[in-house]
Design a protein around this nucleic acid. Structure first.
Lengths: 344, 344
DNA sequence: CTGTTAGCGCCTTCAG
DNA sequence: CTGAAGGCGCTAACAG
C-alpha cells in the first residue's frame, strides 16, 4: 500500500517479459492465449496490484463504458423524494447492477447531454425532461435511448395507456348525475407555480405528455356521461408534492358551488386533497369523491383508501433497463389496474 | 439531423482553417486568444454541430471528469427505499448538481471499484460498504474519498456522535427502576437474517460501525442506571425495513417477562415495533416505551409520536459534497437533537 | 495567436 | 504467442 506503483498495461507487459498484446488478451480475449499463460499473467497482475486495463482509455478506444445515464425529468433532488420515481429507479438499478453496469444520474434540468454523452453507452430517460433543450438534444443523440412515459421517434419506449387509464379512473367516480368535477393536473403547463389552466395557455407540444393524455381520458369520460366541464376547474400543479398539491386543493375546495368530484393526476395529489378535505370537514366520499393515479403504498393504506390506477413502476424500470441492454428499439406498453378504494 | 458529420477537434480546426490548439483554447482557455476569435470559433462550432471536445478523451488526457461516484452501503435498489438514505442523497445531489458535476451511483455490494475508478474524480461513501473487499479497496484508492457515518485514515469524513446520541436516547427512556430493556440493533452482524446477538459472535471489526457505537451508548446508559442487560435481548436486523424489523419486534414482545423498553437503532424499526405492539394490544408508552433513531418525518407525525434522535441527513449530504469538492481531508462532526415524543 | 509534437493508456491488426 | 505500429480525441508545451 505504500510503494503503490502506477501500473499500465505496457509497464506490466515489460515487467512480466511478455508482449502487451498478450496482457491485453489475457484480460479481454481469453481465446487468444493458452489457459495456463492467461492464469499466470492474471495472477501476477493481481499480486503486483494491476487491476486491469484503464477503463477510461478502454472507453476512448472501444467507445463503450458499461455506464448508462438515467435521465431524470427534474433535478436529482426531486427524484429521490418521489415514491413513484424511486420505485422506477429500483427496477432499473436491479437489472443494470445485475449485469455489471453502472448508473449515472443525470438531472433533467441541464441544457444538454454534453457533460456525459461521451462517458456513457446510452440513456434511459424517465419522463419527458423538464428542460426542452435537453428534450431536443435527446432526439439527435447517436447513442441508444430508451424513453419512459413519453416517446421519441425511432427509440425504444415504455408506456402505459394513460388516456384509457384516466378514463377508467374518472368513470368510476362519475356516477352521480350532478357531478361537479375539478381536475388537479400534474404539470399541464411548463411553469413552477400552481395555477388554473385555460384553453388558451395549453401548449401545443403537450400532446405527447402524460398529463395531456390523462386529461384527454378524463374529458372523454365526462363527455360520455354528458357532463359539462368548467374550464376554470382545471389546475396545473408543477410537481407531485404535498406543498403544491395542497395549494391547488385549497383553491378547488373553497369554491362555491364546491366540486364534489376531484380527479387527481397522482396519488400524492389525491392524498393532499384528502387532508385538505378533512381539515375543512368535508366528508369523503359522501360529499366529495377523490380518485388518484399511480397506486402508491400510502394511498392504498390510507383510510379511507384511495381509488387509483395502479401502475407497476418497478416493472417499468426493469423493462426499460432490459430494452436498453438489448439495444432494442421496440415500443412496449405495460398494463395497469384500477384499484377501487373507499374514496369514491 | 440527417447529414450529421461526426466532428472532432482536429476536423473542426481543419474545416475552420485554424490550428487545433486554437480550437482547444477557445473551449478551455479563453485567455489564450482574443474575444473575437473565440466567439467566432464557438459560433461556427455550434452551427456545425460540434459541441466541444470529447469528454472521454479529455478525461483520459487530464485525468478528471467532473463525475463523482456515490458509493452506497448496499445495492442501489435498497438505497432508494430508505428515507434516511434518500435525504442524504438529496443533500449530495443539490450541491454536486449546482457545481455542474454529475453523480455515478455505485453499489456497495460490488467487490472493488475497478469498474468506475478510472471514470470518476473520487468517491463519496455513505455508510461502510457491506462488501468488505470493497471497504478495503476504498482505503487504498489514490483518488479523493469522503466517508460518511464511518471513518478511514487520512480521509475526509462526516459523522455524528452516535455513542452520545444513543446514550441520550436511552437515558430518556430509562426512567423506571424496573426497566426491562430489549435492543433492536441495525446490522450488528454481517448476515442477511434477523437473529439474536450473543457476545461471542459480535465481530471485532464492528468497533467502527455506527451500530456498534450506538450499542455502546445504550450500554453506558444502562450501566449508569444500574440496570443489568440480558444478552439474549439484543437483536441484529439486517436492514432498516419493515419486514425484518417486524420479525425482531415480534420475537422481543413475545417473551415472558416482556420487555418494557425497546431501544431501536432506526425509526423504521421503531415504527414497526409500534405496529407490532398495537397488534398485540400493548399500550405505548404505559406498558412499553419505544425510542428510535434518525428523526424521519413519519416517526414525528406518527401517533403517538416517537422519541428519537434527529439527525439532519440533507445537511450531511451537503457537507460531504462540499468536503469532496474542496478536496478536503477534514473530519467533520455534525450535531443531532433529541426529540422527545410520546412513545416514552 | 499558430503549428507541431508528444503523449494520456489502450486495442487491434498484421506479419512473423 | 510476439512485436511493432496506428489511432481513439484531446491537451500542454514550445518554438515561432
Amino acid at each position: 500500500m505504500s510503494e503503490e506503483k502506477k501500473w499500465t498495461l505496457k509497464s506490466i507487459a515489460l515487467h512480466l517479459g511478455v508482449s502487451n498484446a498478450t496482457v491485453s488478451n489475457a484480460f479481454n480475449r481469453p481465446d487468444q492465449l493458452s489457459k495456463d499463460k492467461r492464469q499466470q499473467i492474471l495472477k501476477a497482475c493481481e499480486e503486483l496490484g494491476y487491476f486491469g486495463p484503464n477503463k477510461a482509455a478502454q472507453s476512448l478506444r472501444k467507445g463503450t463504458s458499461n455506464i448508462v445515464a438515467l435521465v431524470l425529468p427534474d433535478s436529482v433532488e426531486y427524484m429521490v423524494s418521489d415514491p413513484v420515481a424511486s420505485s422506477f429507479m429500483r427496477g432499473v438499478a436491479g437489472i443494470i447492477e445485475e449485469r455489471g453496469n453502472n448508473i449515472l444520474l443525470f438531472s433533467g434540468t441541464q441544457d444538454n447531454l454534453n457533460n456525459v454523452v461521451d462517458f456513457v453507452d446510452g440513456f434511459i430517460c424517465y419522463g419527458r425532461p423538464r428542460n426542452l433543450n435537453l428534450f431536443a438534444h435527446l432526439s439527435s443523440v447517436t447513442k441508444p435511448v430508451v424513453t419512459v412515459d413519453f416517446d421519441l421517434p425511432n427509440r425504444a419506449s415504455v408506456n402505459i395507456d394513460n388516456t384509457q387509464a384516466a378514463y377508467d379512473a374518472a368513470s368510476s367516480a362519475l356516477t352521480q348525475p350532478q357531478a361537479q368535477v375539478a381536475i388537479l393536473g400534474l404539470r399541464l403547463l411548463d411553469t413552477n407555480v400552481v395555477c388554473r389552466v385555460y384553453d388558451e395557455n395549453l401548449p401545443e407540444d403537450l400532446g405527447t405528455s402524460i398529463a395531456h393524455q390523462r386529461l384527454a381520458g378524463y374529458q372523454r369520460a365526462l363527455r360520455e356521461k354528458h357532463l359539462t366541464f368548467l374550464p376554470e376547474l382545471l389546475w396545473s400543479i408543477p410537481e407531485s408534492s404535498e406543498k403544491y398539491a395542497t395549494i391547488a386543493a385549497q383553491e378547488a375546495l373553497s369554491l362555491t358551488p364546491r366540486p364534489n368530484v376531484l380527479l387527481c393526476m397522482s396519488d400524492l395529489i389525491a392524498l393532499a386533497a384528502m387532508r385538505v378535505a378533512k381539515s375543512k370537514g368535508i366528508r369523503v366520499p359522501e360529499e366529495l369523491k377523490i380518485v388518484g393515479f399511480d397506486g402508491i403504498q400510502e394511498a392504498l393504506l390510507h383510510s379511507p383508501s384511495i381509488t387509483t390506477i395502479q401502475q407497476n413502476s418497478v416493472e417499468k424500470g426493469k423493462t426499460a433497463a432490459l430494452l436498453f441492454l438489448e439495444r432494442s428499439t421496440q415500443k412496449v406498453q405495460l398494463g395497469y389496474k384500477l384499484i377501487q378504494g373507499q374514496s369514491n
